[in-house]
């Protein structure tokens, strides 16, 4: 784990919360965007995630790392209610999401991307973003079928907003291309744009740099920070690329066998013996 990237960046001062999580100092007097308490899920007799406790500040970039099969994506699926948690509570901006389904969780403020890209591949890039804007700009089905004046007004709004959002990654020129025909990196970026279109307060990114080359990853790191700064939202990301995680994440949680084994700043995590053991195995005693 190289320390070069870390040093080059301005470090955020992290402050502990009563709930044993840490948040950036600027967020400490604000309500956390997400608070998961004693979150857990069982599949039959198997406990897949257990005692997951985490708070994320409203403008924090948080990282969730861990070896393969540790349950990182499962945590995302719990937070977005793709799976119903067996135990625990999730507070989103202070609101309990216990009775919400995936759609309602999205409306309440969590947007996500997927490890194995899930775009609407038969539709154009622009339409993918417009679907993200679905709950932001509204008109009735009847207005659409009858082509009432509202339709034209709102569709103009849809187009302008979609183009604005595509501008984040300079993807406007791809607007009319089918999403499925995009190269891999562009598909990942489009997924982020679509997620942002739903106007979230927390953006979950599941391996955003997977399959990207080093220069694309560097650009992505800039963009994630830029997104956080412009939209003033929290970002939580799962990633295996340690340069990215250590470079932009302010607080990191390490998951192993469905449990958090360490929480801390990048430098704390890098020197945590338990984390090193989870990744590299135990050192043979001499």
């Amino acid at each position: 784990m190289s320390d070069n990237n870390v040093k080059s960046r301005e470090r955020t001062k992290m402050v502990p919360l009563p709930s044993d999580s840490i948040v950036p100092e600027r967020d400490v007097h604000k309500r956390p965007v997400l608070e998961a308490k004693h979150l857990g899920i069982d599949f039959g007799g198997l406990t897949a995630v257990d005692e997951f406790n985490l708070a994320i500040g409203p403008t924090e970039i948080a990282g969730l790392i861990g070896p393969n099969g540790a349950g990182k994506t499962r945590v995302f699926n719990l937070l977005t209610k793709v799976y119903k948690p067996t135990r625990g509570t999730i507070l989103l901006n202070g609101v309990d999401t216990a009775n919400m389904n995936t759609v309602q969780v999205n409306k309440a403020g969590i947007a996500r991307t997927f490890q194995n890209i899930r775009l609407f591949s038969d539709l154009t890039v622009e339409d993918n973003v417009k679907i993200g804007l679905h709950n932001q700009i509204r008109y009735s089905t009847a207005a659409g079928i009858l082509r009432l004046p509202t339709f034209f007004k709102k569709e103009k709004e849809f187009h302008e907003k979609a183009m604005d959002l595509l501008g984040i990654f300079d993807m406007q020129y791809m607007a009319n291309v089918k999403a499925g025909a995009l190269p891999y990196g562009a598909q990942r970026r489009l997924e982020i744009v679509r997620a942002l279109a739903t106007n979230p307060s927390l953006l979950l990114l599941d391996e955003p740099a997977a399959g990207m080359n080093p220069s694309e990853t560097a650009e992505l790191m800039e963009n994630i920070t830029k997104i956080r700064d412009t939209f003033q939202i929290a970002v939580m990301l799962i990633e295996h690329d340690m340069n990215l995680v250590m470079g932009i994440c302010e607080g990191i949680a390490v998951l192993n066998y469905g449990r958090i084994i360490a929480k801390g700043t990048p430098s704390e995590i890098q020197n945590n013996p338990e984390v090193i053991e989870a990744y590299l195995g135990k050192q043979k005693e001499a």
Binding site: T80, V82, N101, T102, V103, N106, K107, A111, R112, F114, R118, L119, F120, S121, D122, L123, D127, K130, I131, G132, H134, N135, I137, R138, Y139, T141, G144, I145, F151, K154, E155, F158, R194, A195, T198
Partner: peptide
């Protein structure tokens, strides 16, 4: 229209459509 896009989104990827609200 807005409705048609939502319908096609469901067709193309149900889980993504749900996560998109």
């Amino acid at each position: 229209s807005r409705t048609g896009r939502a319908v096609m989104a469901i067709r193309d990827n149900r889980i993504a459509a749900e996560s998109t609200g």
